[in-house]
């Protein structure tokens, strides 16, 4: 193994999650080191979102345990969440709140920093004065991204965060991720798009049908594409 559990910010140990008879996750073990950009790749329905919901303490694993900062993801979710930011894949907002209101609400009163919010609003070219019901999918995603990036988190959990963004915004997103990485943050990036992960990730795990197929480090020599073909693609 190339990692050691001791240094892992996120540690997932033999986690399974069953919904009735379906096994959404089946013995997932994964460790994500501090200050890495970890790509979590898998086709739709592979269990990516279920894994993220377990990390957020929203659902409890049927077996095994997940921890962040050495704290139990389910039991200790409050201290964990004050050091964590999250962007959902499908961003559902309150139709009658303005984007600005939602951003403040998601960051919370104690962690609010107007300067940082304004910086990311500019970067993503988002108008915070509009009601959420008038936002497109991409704009709703931007609301969640601005809220996440403007909060003082150490770990960012992002579930398919770019699926509604146009290429220019996707590029800006990648810049921010690299900058956060430069500041020593840890990023857990779930995606089903190979090229997106390949561009920025420092390590990649591949999940299929609730199992981790492979975990590998990425450098300029890694040919993910070939690797995927060998493991029968995604």
């Amino acid at each position: 193994m190339w990692y050691s559990n001791a240094m892992a910010v996120i540690a997932i140990n033999d986690v399974s999650k069953h919904f009735g008879k379906t096994k959404a996750l089946d013995g997932v073990t994964l460790a994500i080191e501090e200050n890495t950009i970890h790509g979590f790749l898998g086709p739709n329905g592979a269990g990516k979102t279920t894994m993220i919901r377990i990390l957020l303490g929203i659902i409890r694993p049927t077996r095994g345990e997940a921890s962040i900062f050495g704290l139990d993801a389910y039991r200790d979710r409050i201290p964990i969440h004050s050091r964590l930011a999250y962007v959902p894949g499908e961003v559902n907002l309150w139709p009658n709140f303005t984007g600005g209101e939602v951003i403040d609400l998601l960051i919370g009163r104690e962690r609010l920093d107007r300067k940082r919010i304004d910086h990311y609003l500019d970067l993503f070219e988002l108008d915070p004065s509009k009601k959420c019901k008038t936002y497109s999918k991409g704009n709703r995603q931007k609301v969640a991204l601005v809220a996440a990036f403007a909060s003082p988190a150490e770990v960012f959990i992002l579930d398919e965060p770019t699926s509604g963004l146009d290429p220019l915004m996707e590029q800006r997103f990648q810049q921010v991720i690299k900058a956060k990485h430069g500041e020593g943050k840890t990023i857990f990036l779930s995606s089903h798009i190979l090229s997106e992960v390949q561009k920025i990730a420092t390590a990649v795990s591949i999940i299929k049908q609730g199992r981790i197929e492979e975990t590998l480090l990425i450098d300029e020599h890694t040919d993910l594409e070939r690797f995927f073909h060998e493991s029968n693609g995604l």
């Binding site: 929203i58 969440h81 998601l106």
Partner: peptide
């Protein structure tokens, strides 16, 4: 049901 629980409960609040 509207899919907003994750946003609400990913904040540091019980």
């Amino acid at each position: 049901l509207r899919g907003r629980s994750e946003l609400i409960f990913a904040r540091p609040i019980d």
